[in-house]
Write a protein that binds this DNA or RNA. Structure first.
Lengths: 100, 100
DNA sequence: ATTACATATCTATATTTTTAGATATGTAAA
DNA sequence: TTTACATATCTAAAAATATAGATATGTAAT
């Protein structure tokens, strides 16, 4: 858990938003066509639509979020789903609380 | 209190360290020559010495920290002292807790 | 008023980040 | 076994950040 790395990720509005949206996928995204839950998170396409940014930008963002261990990818057929990594997010929050 | 702005500031190791050092000035800095307390924080020169970076870099860093309201400057004669802005830091920690 | 010193600002360069478009890869369906 | 589609990676350009050195400013002592 690298606070500096995480803060870098969270110093961009879109990336913070993505993390927040993933907290309540059912409120922020349409249902997936192949599965009826968000257990593994949300597919890249939906996240892209919601942000209005290009596909490559969102892919890059999600990759940086994954490198910081903030999200976990799961492949389902053609789609990659991303969900929050709650353990790391919680550890980050506690580190901010205790160290800052 | 702008979380994105604060995260930008806190995405650099030196700036995070400065904020941490200012939590316990007596442990991290020598006593000032003109006053015998750290009520208004620590002078720029001591912070510069501790980091080993150039004077202009530290001045820029402190300025960015001040813009994000993380620190409060006080002029004492020739010196500018910087201390933590505990209210904003606390509000930031709570925002991270509640919103993230 | 001149000098010395602490800090801020300006100028400039190297590095990093942001972002898009083009291309590649992997998977499923026809 | 092509085709279509979702996502990732590569390439490249613009913008932002990091940082040093030079210069400016403000304050205090002489």
């Amino acid at each position: 858990m690298d606070i500096i790395e995480i803060n870098k990720v969270l110093s961009n509005k879109t990336r913070v938003n993505i993390l927040k949206w993933l907290k309540n996928p059912e409120l922020n995204f349409p249902p997936h066509q192949d599965i009826d839950h968000f257990n593994d998170g949300v597919c890249v396409g939906y996240i892209q639509d919601k942000t209005g940014l290009s596909q490559s930008t969102i892919s890059t963002y999600l990759n940086s979020m994954q490198n910081a261990d903030l999200v976990i990818p799961t492949r389902h057929g053609k789609w990659t789903y991303y969900k929050r990594n709650e353990d790391v997010i919680q550890a980050y929050i506690e580190a901010i609380q205790n160290e800052l």
